[in-house]
Simulated assay, not measured.
Amino acid sequence: MKEAPDAPDTPVAPVVTAVTRISASVEDVWRALLAFDQYEQWHPVLSFDARPEQVVVGAEIPGRVSGGDTAEQDVTMRIVEVEAPCRLAWEGGSLDTILGRHSFVLAAQPDGATELTESEEFFGAAAAELVPTLGELTKEYSRYGAALGARVEGPSG
């Protein structure tokens, strides 16, 4: 966990981070990340209804989360940061319960591969309840990174 920025009296925000090596260029991984309408073909729990017309700060992407311990849930992710082709971040949820700020950072490696760092920081009234599950969530995020890697590295990548 880390402290919330610029708020010394604010409780720490639980954070999940997973790093995955993908044998593909940053540009190829970036294209797969932005193909929101294709997430259901590779992502274990997340699908989106469509791509936004533009991937810009403020764009909203409706979708759903399914699988795991909870029933299918409609979600809307709002893009909060875009630095093509190396960083994408979105938020979903509510501060009344849990708001997640999810980020993807892509770093080119000397051999042409990509290091994907996928993180999510949790805020809101119920965020502290996630602390006991951070280990399991980290495993899940590693699974998401592996699924993206398989998508990009695969024959249709």
Rank of each mutant, 00 (worst) to 15 (best):
T17S: 14
D28E: 12
V152H: 07
V56Q: 15
H43G: 08
D9E: 14
V152E: 04
C86R: 13
R143W: 06
P8H: 11
A125T: 13
P155T: 15
M1H: 12
V82Q: 01
A146S: 14
Q54H: 15
E40I: 02
E81Q: 14
A107V: 15
I61D: 08
A127L: 07
M77A: 15
A126R: 08
V19S: 05
V26N: 09
L46Y: 02
E153K: 01
D6N: 15
E72L: 03
T10G: 08
V131D: 08
E129D: 14
T20I: 00
G67F: 06
R51S: 03
G93E: 05
A13D: 10
T70H: 14
Q109C: 08
T70P: 01
T17E: 13
Q54D: 15
A35K: 00
P14L: 09
E136V: 12
G149Q: 08
D37K: 01
L34R: 06
H102S: 06
F122I: 04
S103A: 15
H102K: 00
P44S: 04
T10L: 15
R31D: 13
T10R: 14
A24R: 09
G145F: 10
S94H: 07
R143A: 13
E72Y: 03
D49S: 02
R151A: 00
R31Y: 03
E83K: 09
P132T: 09
A84Q: 14
W90Q: 08
S142Y: 07
T20S: 01
R151H: 10
E83S: 09
E83T: 10
A35I: 04
L137E: 00
D111K: 02
Y144K: 00
S25T: 13
S142H: 08
S25K: 09
A24W: 04
I22L: 10
V16H: 00
P110Q: 11
P62N: 09
A7K: 12
V80H: 11
L33D: 05
F36Y: 14
A32V: 10
E3L: 13
K139P: 02
A147W: 04
E40W: 09
T76D: 07
V80L: 06
P5K: 13
Y141E: 03
F123D: 01
P8W: 10
I98G: 09
P110R: 11
Y144M: 14
Y39S: 05
M77S: 13
D69L: 11
L95N: 05
V15R: 13
V26K: 10
D6M: 13
V56P: 05
A150M: 03
S156V: 14
